[in-house]
Design a protein around this nucleic acid. Structure first.
Lengths: 230, 230
DNA sequence: CTAATAAACTGATTATAGTCATAAATGAGA
DNA sequence: TCTCATTTATGACTATAATCAGTTTATTAG
């Protein structure tokens, strides 16, 4: 019933606020071995052909132990790659170009993610299948972090646009960010599932984002510049 | 090597262009039994707790036969419910209200689909997990029909709006339709995965669709009517 | 009709994800 | 140091999705 997450403050010198303790260290070290083994095997054999046995063997743990760290093979997959995806997303926002249109900025961000998935399309497919349903769901903490990073990153871009006066004040940046991500995400899934080529995909994505940004409404008969072909 | 899809034109009277033949009839009948059995069991026991054994038993076929009709348990799930979803989508467009804003119309359409999934959230979750990745992919014919129905339905609404002059001519209705569906879909997934209540979800969806329709761009300093709160 | 061919069916069998009773390791208290 | 309680680890075991070699059934040709 106690929580005792390796907090240890025994005896005299325990100056650093949290000292792990052997138990916690072992656990982390094992967790790291599991992730390393799974990453390598998923990468070389693919998701379906990698058995949990092989992962346990490679990580040098018992077969049952694996499921103490991930409740299922699918969760293991997410565990392995959600960290990578978060890093990729953070990089995307860190290297955001200062100039350029909103669509350019969005394409910059999404291209980082696209490049990541392009490394291994099969794996990406399996991964996205899991992520799609889990991402929004409660107890997947790491995915929640990823989604928050993405949504707040895009939200910040939009808020900056509002501050600069290029984006309507009335728009909730959070909701708009979710919209733009949704557009990206379904287009990504379409690409991952085969069919369409990468250049075509990128072009299509850009066109869709442009529509998402500009909206669908006819600008109420003001014969100004941007009204094309009547 | 021959194709011989039960075409049968034997002997004298074979006036109707394609007469099934016993083999094809058996197959269809068996397929129907499988779908009926699977639907009932998935509905009462849920996806995970329904074994393929139980389905085969209930459909009165061998365990192996099941996998002649669906390559996997997941495909079986899609087989069972994609027909329902298509019907639901067709109903939504059939009963489209003549008046109302674009957002109203979209909400009308999506509400039909939402009501369907609301009947059994757990099942919907399992179903959407499969559908999300397969929907776009090649060899899933029934899902392809579903997506085409949805996209062309929304596309038609938008094209009508263009004809009426309320929607910008420059917008590709197909791409815009995919955007609006994407907004709906990720919001749906978020709802299905728990957390948010139905009224909140509907409200949020409407707000997002409004943003998707109106766009994000500041209307270039024309102090006209529709510019809210400066 | 009969034989030959092809398609559809079958359930015993296999592969593997995930469980669970038991054992080992760890840390706290004395 | 030696208990004792709690957490973590283990691999034999179970459940079940999916396969496949062998069988049955339908169709076509003669």
């Amino acid at each position: 019933m106690k929580q005792s997450s390796g907090v240890r403050a025994k005896g005299s010198r325990a100056q650093s606020p949290v000292e792990p303790g052997r138990r916690e260290r072992n656990k982390q070290e094992k967790r790291a071995r599991i992730i390393a083994a799974a990453r390598e095997l998923f990468g070389s054999q693919g998701f379906a052909d990698t058995t949990t046995q092989k992962i346990a063997e490679k990580a040098d743990i018992g077969t049952g132990t694996l499921f103490l760290y991930a409740k299922s093979k699918e969760e293991l997959l997410v565990m392995v790659f959600s960290g990578d995806m978060l890093e990729q997303a953070q990089n995307a926002f860190r290297h955001l170009p200062a100039s350029g249109s909103l669509v350019d900025k969005l394409m910059h961000v999404f291209r980082y993610m696209i490049e990541y998935h392009d490394q291994d399309k099969e794996l990406a497919k399996a991964l996205l299948k899991e992520v799609t349903v889990l991402a929004t769901s409660g107890p997947r903490r790491d995915l929640a972090r990823l989604m928050h990073c993405i949504y707040s990153g895009i939200g910040d871009i939009l808020a900056a646009g509002q501050a600069a006066g290029t984006i309507r004040q009335g728009v909730d940046p959070q909701l708009a960010a979710e919209n733009l991500f949704a557009i990206y995400y379904l287009t990504l899934l379409n690409w991952i599932s085969g069919e369409i080529s990468k250049p075509r995909f990128l072009k299509r994505l850009r066109a869709k984002l442009a529509i998402g940004v500009e909206g669908l409404i006819e600008p109420a008969k003001t014969p100004q510049k941007s009204a094309r072909r009547t």
